[in-house]
C-alpha cells in the first residue's frame, strides 16, 4: 500500500526531478570552473575537486537525460553528455597547466 503510494508520488514527481537534475548539473559545472579559474592556474595541488564536481555533473545530467528520453536518442544524448564532461575536464586541465592561449 505504502510502496504503491510512494510509486505513484514518484511517477508524478519524476518530470520535476529530472529537470532539477539538470539544474544540479549546471551548479556543479559552475563550481568546477570557478574553482579552477580562481585557484588552480600554475598552482594545481591535485585535490581532485574539479574532477569530482564534473563527474557529479555528468552523472546528474545523464540521469536527467535518461529520464526524459528513450531508445537511440537516449544513447546518443548520454554519449554526448559524457563526451562534454570529458572535453570540459580536458579544457580545464590545459588551463591549469597554462597551456591555453587565453585567460578563462
Amino acid at each position: 500500500m505504502v510502496t504503491g503510494g510512494l510509486w505513484l508520488a514518484w511517477q508524478r514527481l519524476r518530470g520535476t526531478v529530472s529537470m532539477a537534475l539538470f539544474g544540479l548539473s549546471g551548479a556543479l559545472v559552475a563550481g568546477s570552473v570557478q574553482h579552477v579559474v580562481q585557484t588552480c592556474r600554475g598552482n594545481c595541488l591535485g585535490c581532485g575537486s574539479c574532477a569530482v564536481a564534473l563527474a557529479g555533473a555528468v552523472v546528474s545530467a545523464s540521469a536527467g537525460v535518461a529520464e526524459r528520453t528513450s531508445g537511440r536518442r537516449r544513447r546518443l544524448l548520454l554519449a554526448l553528455t559524457a563526451l562534454a564532461g570529458l572535453a570540459l575536464y580536458y579544457l580545464l586541465s590545459l588551463y591549469k597547466r597554462g597551456l591555453l592561449p587565453f585567460q578563462i
Binding site: T16, A20, G23, L24, S25, G26, A27, L28, G31, C47
Partner: peptide, 19 residues
C-alpha cells in the same frame, strides 16, 4: 525545478571545497 536543482548544487558545493 531547474532553479531548485541549481540551488541544491550550489549548497552542496562547499562540502567538496568548491563554490
Amino acid at each position: 525545478a531547474i532553479r531548485y536543482g541549481f540551488l541544491s548544487g550550489f549548497m552542496i558545493l562547499p562540502f567538496i571545497g568548491l563554490s
